[in-house]
Design a protein around this nucleic acid. Structure first.
Lengths: 111, 111
DNA sequence: TACCAGTAGCTAGTGTCACCAAGTAGCTGG
DNA sequence: CCAGCTACTTGGTGACACTAGCTACTGGTA
């Protein structure tokens, strides 16, 4: 793994996070932990936070500051209407790519 | 489409090209045309050439200059042993990512 | 003859994104 | 009182696809 995953995550990590948020609201630390749990063991702390700020500035998520029992206040993100629309687009794009790749994998080659 | 695809292609386009070359040798112009045919309508000319140079410098492919009947000589690329190994790794990484995403898509969310 | 379209490849500069490294800040337990 | 967990932030780096050009060779056409 390593560099290969890193490059592939470009563009998809965003969708992954949005997909997580489509199920429930969550905050950065939580999302990072969840990703690590799912096998993305090398996800960098800072990466998730930077991504969250990005999608917030694009207006795909709503933010709410919630005090934590242990530590600084959490920034809880939830997907809004625009985010849902964007996620829809993401899945379409993903499907397109996944289809082509699956075809390549077991077709050996196109023609 | 557009930006979404562009970002997702980072890391995967390389694998796509290697997968194509695993089936048969090919040259840049041909690969670009094939990609366009497969629905990657917006693939930039230069992108493929840059990628080919990159994988050549990494020693994943062998190159052979072949004269063309119509136009400048072609640079025909073919996957070598190291390239095959790399492609293997690529598919593993891809599978990992695809599984996680598929899970997210129809699971709605993880927990 | 001059020009254009098709074939074939190259290059410099740009933007985006994940990474690394280091930091701030609040709380709890030894 | 400080080590360790929680929680978020920031500046700089590298990789990669894109844009927008360019060179060069062939055949057909105005």
């Amino acid at each position: 793994m390593g560099k290969l995953v890193t490059e592939m995550l470009k563009g998809t990590l965003e969708g992954i996070v949005l997909a997580i948020l489509s199920g429930r609201s969550a905050y950065g630390y939580e999302i990072t932990a969840w990703l690590r749990d799912q096998g993305f063991s090398e996800i960098a702390e800072g990466t998730v936070y930077a991504l969250l700020i990005r999608i917030e500035q694009r207006g795909l998520v709503d933010v709410q500051k919630v005090p934590s029992e242990k530590g600084p206040p959490r920034k809880v993100y939830s997907l809004n209407a625009q985010g849902r629309e964007y996620l829809e687009e993401f899945w379409k794009t993903w499907s397109f790519l996944a289809e082509r790749l699956e075809q390549l994998r077991d077709g050996g080659n196109g023609k």
